[in-house]
Amino acid sequence: MKILVCISHVPDTTSKINFTEGDSKFDTNGVQFVINPNDEFGLTRAMWFKEKQGASVDIINVGGPETEPTLRKALAIGADTAIRINTIPTDGFQVAKELAKVAGEGNYDLIICGRESIDYNGGMVPGLLAGMLKANFINTCIGLEVEGVKATAIREIDGGKETLTASLPLVIGGQKGIVEESDLKIPNMRGIMQARKKPLNVVEPSGAEAATKAVKFEKPAPKGDVKLIDPENLDQLIDLLHNEAKVI
């Protein structure tokens, strides 16, 4: 089985978020980047297929050279080959088109994406990619098995679970549950040393254009100070809730 795992390079969840260029661009200054957590769950599942079923695992990312440490980490965890499509990702359409070109040429049986990346939370790429590749698609996977050309996936649905089967080639949007947090692999020293020698192929983009453009980002308004009202003074509390907080 040939697996491709799509890896987004995203800010660590503890990063401070700021914007530049008139609030239209994310300020990467001083920000730590990591493998998108939803992708890491998928990558870990891919490693399981590699270990148990002899699958080969390639990883792919759309981004500039600054994303290479993230790809090297994925290689250190055990992926075989990395592909970086050398262009700055701007929206889901562009990313999906770029991925579809390379993924299509690679004849993959299974393409694992994260359900969404935790930076812009677009959640479009897995579905678009499946559509462009004319492959089957199952989103929000919390379980995945493959036997021959048949995949069985478990999805999270409102209030329960759904089990589906589909034939390969298949694109999935994975999330926590496909493996648990405790299954995530810490790159071992040997893996880190081997990662240096594994291929990281840089592919020039096909020039796919974005369909949307970010005009402005806004952060939630800062929280105001807490006001303490004397329990005896209920009228003042009601007045503030009604006129100032406008919640009643």
Partner: peptide, 14 residues
Amino acid sequence: NEEQKMMRDSVQEF
């Protein structure tokens, strides 16, 4: 170097 940074991150994660 990149490898040493990865080692550091790996140990920290551990």
